[in-house]
């Protein structure tokens, strides 16, 4: 049911209007909602995070101009790279006249965590046609991932499996809503930074909204004991490994957190 049937049923362009009667195992809360409702719910649930994304995008726009990047190229990077932390690191290193290789390496290491996000959602996207998987992969940012994975985990159908995938499962539309909202906001806030950036007084400390966003998401994402252990391990690692070059510290911290969480899960939650 998960792969074959669903593949045919959901491969349509806009399945919203033609929901087939629930011949698959329906997801609790899912069957009646439809594609458009899921998409809009994704947009709605993503929107509080924009408070943290707007200053981030503007910071990047300002930093890009300061680094001597032409505005059109800075905007293009927001569409092509679409990863805030890496983009900011790139332009900061450009201003510091770093070489191509260190910049590329730093950006690559900063984005390495997306492989983990990719693994984390892979199970939920398996039933989708390739163009959906490509599109959602492109939109797989920190903030979109956090909101979408909460949705997948909150109403997961079936344990340990592909989490639904029946013809009445429109949660990929929810993911798309999250991703699209974030994408649009990122493009617009980059543009805003490029246009008005210099007019915003730095003592407003708008950049402080960025860690606050991560903090809010963290508390939503930490629920099990093993998750708490993973978070503590990663937080500890972020401090200990901070001096490592090329932002390798972030990767090392996440790996430490994963290892700690994994160990605790093995001991305390042997059924998973």
């Amino acid at each position: 049911m998960v792969s074959g049937l669903a593949k045919k049923k959901t491969s349509g362009d806009f399945p919203g209007g033609s929901t087939p009667p629930g011949d698959g195992r329906p997801c609790p809360g899912g069957p009646r909602s439809g594609a458009m409702a899921e998409f809009l719910a994704g947009c709605r649930d993503e929107s509080p995070l924009l408070l943290g994304v707007v200053p981030f995008g503007m910071m990047y726009g300002i930093a890009a101009l300061a680094a001597g990047l032409p505005a059109w190229m800075a905007q293009l990077a927001s569409a092509v790279v679409f990863a805030g932390a890496a983009q900011l690191a790139i332009v900061q290193m450009l201003s510091a006249a770093a070489g191509l290789l260190p910049i590329g390496l730093t950006a690559g290491l900063l984005n390495l965590r997306h492989i983990l996000y990719s693994a984390s959602v892979a199970d939920h996207l398996r039933h989708l046609p390739r163009r959906w998987r490509v599109l959602l992969a492109y939109l797989l940012t920190d903030e979109a991932y956090a909101v979408a994975i909460l949705r997948y985990q909150a109403r997961g159908c079936g344990k340990g499996g592909a989490g639904g995938g029946g013809p009445t499962d429109f949660r990929h539309w929810y993911f798309l809503g999250c991703g699209f909202t974030l994408w649009l906001c990122w493009q617009l806030s980059t543009a805003a930074g490029l246009v008005f950036g210099a007019g915003i007084p730095p003592d407003w400390d708008l950049d402080f909204a960025v860690p606050l966003t991560f903090l809010a998401l963290l508390t939503l994402l930490v629920r099990e004991r093993s998750g708490q252990a993973a978070a503590l391990g990663a937080a500890f690692g972020a401090l200990v490994f901070a001096p490592l070059p090329y932002n390798l510290g972030l990767v090392a911290a996440i790996v430490l957190g994963l290892a700690v969480g994994f160990r605790v899960a093995e001991r305390k939650e042997p059924d998973r």
Partner: peptide
């Protein structure tokens, strides 16, 4: 299951 807590 540990990816989101550790990353964030």
């Amino acid at each position: 299951r540990q990816i989101a807590p550790a990353s964030f």
